[in-house]
Write a protein that binds this DNA or RNA. Structure first.
Lengths: 349, 349
DNA sequence: CTGAAAGCGCTTACAG
DNA sequence: CTGAAAGCGCTTACAG
């Protein structure tokens, strides 16, 4: 609200006067029209340079009743996984000539609503949304009423008007669990995350499916919730290890939780990959750098962002009929923390 | 460019008709003017709700010749340090009622220029810029010509028209080096970063100052450049350890480099904090979680972003005369990697 | 190939 | 307290 454009702004009228043409001609030059004669074209360009003219896209869009801004509404940019995804998203949209409004909601549904409305008032014609924890479909009722395309990414919401891009959480968790079973484990925990988070439900479902298909009983005590961070992982591990019949392996909600688990194992004098098998999910940058390197399910964060951009672009172009859904890859990457590869560093207990 | 606002947009004229008032009255209601009688006021609000009107801020700003958008141009959002800083920045600006256009340049000066121009065309009235590596003042000549306030954050540029917010790199590096000297080290390396990066120059200057004040000779072989990431840290450590007279301690360009150094030490059978002292810079989240916990210089990333927001707001309000400069804190945090605290985990060589 | 005129959605003096 | 009119910076038929 604060500020004007400085001293009186240079407009196409000024350019027209300086170049000795009408303002329509200037407008045509601005749009690269072939209708303008080269000599006038050059005069206009020269005047633009000389007067330091800057195109007022808002005015143009107002007249044409179009807009090229899209909203990117992200739950938590300080999480490297989401940051990576956002970067892929933003680059793809920018390449397509759209101008992305990017906002961080810090996992606050309230701020999310505020920000989406501000973007709308500024002409957003579509959104990519990674919803804040606790967002439900009702929170988006106002957004829905706008009738604009919205694509959720990573966190699916239960609403049929939304497009979505998610990794194959169920399949990835199933394959990871199958790998642990193949290594001979029979007591496999599922550690971390919160019931109610869609991602948690899906990954846990993959774990359950693998156990069921192996004919193993489902012990509810082996699935323990936590905050989805390192501390949560550490706490959850303590919980599960204090069971009468503790597990020998854990599939973790994500890599960050898995790293917490590895530290907690160290604290108990146990080494991941030797005394206990740990598998993560996401394949964040830290996964390969921690000791032992973390076996995990790789999710292509940047690609997920690009997929979301693709869907949004199709919706905006009107070539897509109704909401679209893309499921991204979730590939098991075997490193040392599950004990399948030889851990490179010999350690005394 | 793609898209109109869907089916014909609801405007204040529609609201005026529906509420049986003139459009000026609607406009006054929108601005919360006390001039409108309560009964008409309510009628208007009701019509707004019923017709699903959304305020067209672009049109309003065009008419008033003002704008509330500011540009946030960030080098690399996938780096947790910059992500954190950005979040502080964005929140502060949003709270002030501005609407921040956030863009990631991926360390590309070209993309940076493109993005800043696009923002300008969309009405940006000021910028906070964390410049891409390799940006020099000339790259910003066009930006400068716009005459808008620009605040750089973290990476200072040599240009007197820019405001800046930076941590106390020189002081922090000096204090860290003094601590290593106090612990008895005499061969202290400065590892990582690239000559030409202002941050590198400043931190290196702090290291040099401490050595000089201690009366120690400056051995140029002890300062080795690297890419500012883990791999760079690992490579740089190898370089410095292969000297005829290797160091016993290293001040690292940043924490990420320091973590690379710690891993490389492990690879040589050495333990940071016991066989070799390592100090980082930044205090990223990983610093306290790695083993051994990293002694480092804490930079308040979020605060830096908030400082930058403060400066920009003052410039926009016109209360600041000329460019402003803020230097943020840089506090030494002693953990185990420098050997001052007892490393908690006993390990065999 | 170029110029005069209308209009995008809003705000703001200015009458009444 | 409210309405008619002009105008922000642009684009787009429409004449010529």
């Amino acid at each position: 609200m604060l500020k004007g454009g400085g001293q009186s702004r240079v407009t196409i009228v000024d350019i027209a006067r300086a170049a000795g043409v009408s303002k329509s001609t200037v407008s045509l030059v601005l749009q690269g029209s072939p209708l303008v004669k080269p000599d006038k074209y050059d005069k206009v360009r020269e005047a633009i340079q000389r007067l330091g003219y800057v195109y007022h896209r808002g005015a143009a869009n107002l007249r044409r009743s179009v807009s090229d801004v899209v909203g990117l509404v992200i739950n938590d940019l300080t999480n490297p996984f989401f940051a990576e995804m956002t970067v892929g998203l933003e680059a793809a949209l920018q390449t397509a000539g759209l101008i992305p409004f990017l906002a961080n909601t810090g996992e606050s549904p309230t701020r999310q609503a505020l920000v989406m409305r501000a973007m709308r008032e500024h002409g957003a014609v579509g959104y990519v949304l990674c919803p804040a924890i606790g967002t439900n479909a009702d929170d988006l009722a106002e957004v829905r009423a706008w009738g604009l395309p919205v694509t959720t990414v990573m966190r699916r919401l239960l609403a049929d008007w939304l497009s979505s891009v998610t990794p194959d959480n169920v399949g990835g968790a199933r394959r990871a669990t199958e790998h642990l079973l193949w290594l001979g484990h029979r007591r496999i925990a599922f550690v971390g995350g919160r019931v109610g988070m869609v991602v948690h439900e899906e990954r846990r479902a993959g774990w359950e499916t693998a156990l069921r298909q192996a004919g193993l009983p489902l012990d509810p005590a082996l699935a323990v919730e936590s905050t989805p961070n390192r501390d949560g992982g550490a706490v959850a591990l303590q919980r599960v290890m204090s069971l009468a019949d503790p597990p020998t392996a854990a599939l973790c909600f994500n890599d960050v939780v898995a790293i917490g688990v590895i530290y907690a194992l160290n604290g108990r004098g146990l080494a991941a990959g030797r005394d206990f098998a740990v598998v993560g999910f996401d394949d964040i940058a830290d996964a390969r750098l921690i000791h032992p390197p973390l076996t995990t399910v790789a999710v292509e964060s940047r690609r997920l962002g690009e997929h979301a951009a693709t869907i949004l672009l199709e919706q905006l172009a009107g070539t897509a009929a109704g909401p679209q859904h893309i499921t991204g890859d979730a590939r098991l990457i075997v490193r040392a923390s599950c004990g399948a590869a030889g851990a490179p560093q010999p350690k005394a207990a």
